[in-house]
């Protein structure tokens, strides 16, 4: 074995190799963190008053109060209805939207408009959309359905457009070569290739919509969320817990169904 004599140093390479840049990142990062934490105005006094309130909160929360069972039941059903209607609306509208937003099919002008719509629909959290619709159209499931349809359309439109953009060109050309018109090309060349994805996404969408439909009621857009919000504001935390448990259960059930169906489709 050869002995190299002089000992050689080894140190692990730093994540950021340039030392100046590294120190800038470290300093700016920690300065920001200190500032942000400081800006929270977190003080122990509030913690101390918060603690008894938390204890009180939990004491009032248990046991969950199911005495207003019919209200919970109605809210859950409304959420379900909203999710079903919105999902149906958006999976139909998603077809023209995604064709318009697919670069390999659409024309430039239509493409830009469709993509702009998708970005708009995807960027705002559903709650924000819901509150605007409620302000415009009043309370109830109607603005809720609009909200869910709008945000779901953005989601579905984007993913479906991507699926269309990734299709096998050869198959489309083969159909076109038979002399089929535009509509028939879509039907025989494009549709079969994206259909499995479409069905899978539709079910996933129902899952997402149901989740959202249990929440947007907080701003008055229908569904079980409204009951939850009211229970909180009346300090009826035991009812709130009952509603919360109902929400968790239907969300989990839907997630389970959705993942089962989707894995069967594959």
């Amino acid at each position: 074995m050869s002995d190299t004599g002089a000992s050689t140093v080894w140190k692990r390479d730093h994540f950021i190799k340039n030392p100046i840049l590294r120190w800038i990142v470290i300093l700016v990062g920690s300065a920001y963190l200190i500032y942000a934490i400081n800006d929270m105005n977190f003080n122990l006094d509030r913690m101390r008053t918060g603690w008894p309130r938390a204890v009180d909160f939990f004491q009032r929360m248990f046991p969950p109060d199911y005495s207003r069972w019919t209200m919970i039941y109605k809210g859950v059903f409304e959420s379900l209805q909203m999710a079903i209607i919105a999902t149906t609306v958006s999976i139909f509208l998603a077809i023209p939207l995604s064709l318009a937003a697919a670069a390999n099919i659409s024309v430039k002008f239509v493409y830009v408009i469709a993509r702009a719509f998708i970005v708009l629909a995807r960027s705002f959290p559903p709650i924000l959309v819901a509150i605007m619709f409620v302000k415009a159209f009043g309370f109830g499931p109607f603005p809720g359905i609009l909200t869910l349809s709008f945000t779901a359309l953005g989601f579905m439109g984007k993913l479906l457009a991507e699926a269309i953009e990734n299709i096998d060109k050869g198959q489309v050309e083969a159909v076109r070569a038979t002399g089929a018109n535009w509509f028939k090309v879509q039907l025989y060349g494009v549709a079969p290739q994206v259909l499995p994805r479409y069905v899978g996404l539709s079910i996933y969408l129902l899952d997402i919509n149901l989740r959202a439909s249990t929440i947007i009621g907080i701003v008055g857009a229908g569904g079980i969320g409204g009951a939850l919000f009211n229970a909180f504001h009346r300090y009826e935390y035991d009812t709130a817990l009952a509603i919360l448990i109902a929400i968790i259960v239907i969300v989990l059930v839907m997630e389970f169904i959705s993942s089962k169906v989707r894995s069967r489709l594959q």
Binding site: I218, L228, I247, L252
Partner: peptide
């Protein structure tokens, strides 16, 4: 599971009870 299936707005409602309204 609890963390994931309770929406942030609901967590917000709960923590506002604890800490009062605000960033915390």
């Amino acid at each position: 599971v609890t963390s994931r299936s309770v929406n942030e707005l609901v967590w917000g409602l709960i923590f506002v009870v604890f800490f009062g309204p605000g960033v915390v």
